[in-house]
Nucleic acid binder design. Sequence first.
DNA 1: GTCATGTAGTTGATCGTTCAACTAGACAGT
DNA 2: ACTGTCTAGTTGAACGATCAACTACATGAC
Lengths: 157, 157
Amino acid sequence: METKTATPWLTPEQQRVWRSFLGGTTVLMDRLDRDLRATHGLSVPEYEILVRLSEAPGRSIRMAELAAAVAHSRSRVTHTIARLERENIVVRGQCSEDGRGVSAVLTDHGFSVLEAAAHTHVQGVHDYLIENADAADFVAMGRVMQNVVEALHGKNF
Amino acid sequence: METKTATPWLTPEQQRVWRSFLGGTTVLMDRLDRDLRATHGLSVPEYEILVRLSEAPGRSIRMAELAAAVAHSRSRVTHTIARLERENIVVRGQCSEDGRGVSAVLTDHGFSVLEAAAHTHVQGVHDYLIENADAADFVAMGRVMQNVVEALHGKNF
DNA sequence: GTCATGTAGTTGATCGTTCAACTAGACAGT
DNA sequence: ACTGTCTAGTTGAACGATCAACTACATGAC
């Protein structure tokens, strides 16, 4: 039996950090998204999906794995892939060995779209984020977010 | 006349950090949002708006200032405030001294909703983020994101 | 075999965000 | 006063994400 723990309030310092985090991610993601849309008609989530596909053997990943890799719901991935398929950037393929399985495959055209988009995206990450971060601070942030991913892993949806 | 600078590619380390960042924010925001919705029917963006209002003199801020404070478009704030007004959490007031001005005002009911929601939200930030971060890493992340906010300030929309 | 249960993926409705177009008041120049 | 330009805020359509309900295949118990 335990005593109910009181809500641990945030210190002013923690509050400042949290607000910077929230404001920073909002403005950063917004900017990266706009750049990518303007130059290549892709959103950041779409781009992330294409990156995973491009790295996979056969440039092909099953829907559920893809969903897990980018931390989106299965439904969301279905819709996103449907959109990308309309633009001939990916195609769907039946999965052997599991009758239910469907895998998304990056087309050659999709790959070249991705290659072009990568320049814009990487430039953005560099200019907006890395350029504004002390190298040690940057890897510190990486550690934190990696821990968050691991701690929350599987606990969503 | 300048030579075109080549795209500065990311080092493997930088790539890892960036992916952790992307995955971590996705999963963290998703979780905070779910918690808040489930317990108090508020989204994180809505919550952030209420926080700003609660801190302002007269619990009241003009639409454009509110938009700037939370880094949302004016249109988005209009829609969000409209939704919150339907639930009697805020009301709109005409602004004296500027005939165009409209200010959002937090109601007493809104304030108590916010108070309740704050417990859930702060607990979440604590458990999912702060708890998973070394103290020094946490403030390092704050520095980085603060820089990002300042660097990108005003350069969006 | 067949029945129950679990997993993969899709679907359509609903909701929140974005975008472009719009109204209306402010403000400066003449 | 009059005109042009700027800022504040709103509107409705289009788009993307979420949610609940559904189909279909897999798996294990009997």
